[in-house]
């Protein structure tokens, strides 16, 4: 993986960042500090992986930064927009227009066809998708023959590819992917990860991916490590080996 160029002297606004983020669940004795003062920045045009063992808070971090959950304290930004200042309508609009999502499963609305699922955010906004971009994505992802099918008529890999298309169609500021290959076999996994990589390299997309798979993380430009609700490490230009190595070190 080649190092991408660093930005010139003028600082570029990160795609998203968190400042002193804290998230607690429960009360009293049963209180759990899922995020314990996290400070992190995700760069524009980069593929960042967030890794950590179960209970490290990586999913919680993503929920807070995507506006799906409200932190107990601290601030989060998408671009220059502070998320905490938005009301529900504002958050909704932001999710619709500026953020893309790929989940581990249940990405698609079961009653719509693949094609309709892909254009769904645009339909919600009342706008039309860029047809050329749509055709390009569909063909690149190889799901043209599945466009009129419902999710239950598609394989897991096809569903995830459709989810990718939907996430990319509106060219969002940032795409959050939560264990996108968790339910896939190794072939489909590899295909998906390389497509995500391409979208960063060739289309300038910014992606943040939560994962616990070192091979997946190896596709990223940078890996952020979380443990016990805090950032504990970082790796640039990772490889599967270097990621494994880092994780072993964190375990001790």
């Amino acid at each position: 993986m080649a190092l991408t160029d660093h930005a010139p002297s003028a600082p570029v606004l990160p795609a998203a960042r968190a400042v002193d983020l804290v998230k607690t669940y429960g009360k009293g004795d049963a209180a759990v500090r899922a995020l314990d003062g996290v400070n992190v920045e995700f760069e524009r045009g980069r593929f960042t992986a967030v890794m950590g063992p179960s209970g490290s808070g990586k999913s919680t971090l993503m929920h807070c930064m995507a506006g799906l959950d409200v932190p107990t304290s601290g601030r989060t930004f998408v671009g220059d927009q502070e998320i905490g200042l938005l009301d529900d309508a504002g958050l909704t609009q932001m999710r619709r227009d500026r953020i893309g999502f790929v989940f581990q499963s249940f990405n698609l609305v079961p009653t719509l066809s693949a094609g309709e699922n892909i254009t769904l955010p645009a339909d919600l906004a009342g706008t039309k998708v860029d047809q050329a971009w749509f055709d390009f994505l569909i063909d690149q992802l190889g799901i043209r023959d599945r466009l009129s099918h419902r999710p239950n008529e598609m394989s897991g890999g096809q569903q995830q590819r459709a989810a990718c298309a939907r996430a990319l169609i509106s060219r969002p500021d940032l795409i959050f992917a939560d264990e996108p290959t968790g339910n896939l076999d190794s072939n489909s996994s590899a295909e998906m990860l390389s497509f995500l990589r391409r979208s960063v390299t060739e289309f300038g997309q910014s992606i943040v991916m939560v994962t616990h798979d070192p091979r997946g993380a190896a596709h990223a430009d940078r890996v952020v490590f979380l443990a016990d609700g805090q950032v504990v490490g970082e790796l640039l230009s990772p490889s599967a080996d270097s990621v494994l190595e880092q994780m072993k070190q964190l375990d001790t």
């Binding site: 529900d88 609305v109 009653t111 955010p121 919600l124 939907r166």
Partner: peptide, 14 residues
């Protein structure tokens, strides 16, 4: 619930 929540995630307003 899950389906409606997904629509909200994707940006459907209340």
């Amino acid at each position: 619930t899950r389906e409606l929540a997904l629509l909200r995630v994707l940006g459907a307003s209340r």
